[in-house]
Lab assay of single mutants.
Amino acid sequence: GDWICPDKKCGNVNFARRTSCNRCG
């Protein structure tokens, strides 16, 4: 399913099809 970026500065939910965090950094 969808997953949350492990980066504390991010924390946005990513679609399951993504293999990396979206809009992190």
Results as ranks from 00 to 15, higher is better:
14 N>Y: 02
23 R>M: 08
9 K>V: 07
17 R>T: 15
12 N>K: 11
13 V>N: 09
24 C>L: 01
12 N>Y: 13
2 D>R: 03
20 S>A: 11
16 A>S: 14
3 W>P: 04
20 S>N: 13
24 C>F: 00
14 N>I: 02
13 V>C: 05
15 F>I: 15
6 P>G: 07
24 C>H: 05
10 C>E: 02
23 R>I: 15
20 S>M: 11
5 C>P: 02
3 W>E: 04
10 C>R: 02
12 N>T: 11
10 C>W: 00
5 C>I: 03
22 N>T: 13
19 T>P: 09
23 R>F: 10
1 G>Q: 09
12 N>I: 06
16 A>P: 11
5 C>D: 04
7 D>H: 08
25 G>W: 03
12 N>H: 11
17 R>E: 14
4 I>T: 10
7 D>G: 05
22 N>F: 11
21 C>Q: 00
21 C>F: 00
17 R>M: 12
20 S>R: 10
15 F>L: 11
17 R>Q: 15
14 N>F: 01
23 R>N: 13
19 T>R: 06
24 C>A: 04
5 C>K: 00
24 C>V: 01
20 S>Q: 09
7 D>L: 06
1 G>P: 06
17 R>S: 15
22 N>A: 14
19 T>Q: 06
22 N>C: 06
4 I>F: 07
20 S>F: 08
1 G>K: 12
11 G>Y: 07
12 N>D: 09
11 G>D: 02
1 G>N: 10
1 G>T: 14
21 C>W: 00
15 F>C: 11
9 K>R: 10
7 D>C: 01
12 N>E: 13
24 C>T: 03
2 D>H: 01
24 C>G: 02
16 A>G: 11
23 R>A: 12
23 R>L: 13
20 S>G: 06
10 C>G: 04
12 N>R: 07
13 V>H: 04
14 N>H: 02
12 N>L: 05
1 G>D: 08
13 V>F: 09
15 F>H: 07
25 G>N: 08
16 A>H: 12
2 D>T: 09
13 V>Y: 10
18 R>Y: 13
20 S>C: 11
5 C>L: 01
16 A>Y: 10
10 C>H: 03
3 W>S: 08
10 C>F: 02
17 R>N: 14
13 V>S: 09
11 G>E: 03
18 R>E: 14
10 C>A: 03
2 D>A: 03
4 I>R: 06
19 T>D: 13
17 R>I: 12
2 D>V: 00
25 G>D: 08
4 I>Y: 00
3 W>R: 06
13 V>G: 07
10 C>I: 04
16 A>C: 03
17 R>Y: 11
14 N>C: 03
24 C>I: 00
22 N>P: 08
20 S>K: 12
5 C>H: 00
4 I>N: 05
13 V>M: 14
17 R>A: 15
7 D>I: 03
16 A>R: 07
11 G>A: 14
21 C>Y: 00
22 N>S: 14
7 D>F: 07
1 G>A: 09
11 G>F: 06
10 C>Q: 04
1 G>C: 07
9 K>Y: 15
2 D>L: 00
21 C>V: 01
23 R>P: 03
6 P>Q: 14
18 R>V: 15
2 D>P: 00
18 R>W: 13
15 F>Y: 15
19 T>S: 11
5 C>S: 02
8 K>E: 08
18 R>L: 14
18 R>C: 12
15 F>Q: 11
3 W>H: 09
13 V>L: 06
1 G>V: 10
12 N>Q: 06
4 I>K: 10
7 D>K: 03
2 D>W: 03
8 K>N: 11
20 S>V: 08
22 N>R: 13
5 C>W: 00
24 C>S: 03
11 G>Q: 13
21 C>H: 00
19 T>M: 08
7 D>A: 06
24 C>M: 02
3 W>L: 06
9 K>T: 12
12 N>A: 09
14 N>P: 01
3 W>V: 00
25 G>C: 07
8 K>F: 06
21 C>P: 00
6 P>R: 07
15 F>T: 12
1 G>I: 11
3 W>Y: 06
10 C>L: 01
5 C>N: 01
16 A>W: 13
19 T>G: 07
13 V>T: 14
12 N>V: 04
7 D>N: 09
19 T>Y: 07
24 C>W: 00
2 D>Q: 05
14 N>K: 04
24 C>D: 02
1 G>Y: 05
13 V>E: 07
9 K>I: 08
16 A>F: 12
25 G>I: 01
12 N>S: 09
3 W>F: 08
8 K>Y: 07
21 C>M: 01
1 G>M: 12
24 C>R: 00
21 C>A: 02
17 R>V: 12
6 P>S: 12
6 P>N: 11
15 F>W: 08
23 R>D: 14
7 D>Y: 08
23 R>G: 14
21 C>I: 00
22 N>I: 11
25 G>H: 09
20 S>H: 13
14 N>D: 05
4 I>W: 02
24 C>N: 03
6 P>D: 14
8 K>S: 10
24 C>Y: 00
4 I>H: 15
6 P>E: 13
15 F>A: 13
12 N>F: 10
7 D>R: 08
15 F>M: 14
12 N>P: 00
10 C>Y: 02
24 C>E: 05
19 T>C: 05
22 N>D: 15
25 G>T: 07
7 D>P: 02
14 N>V: 03
22 N>M: 15
14 N>R: 01
2 D>M: 10
19 T>V: 08
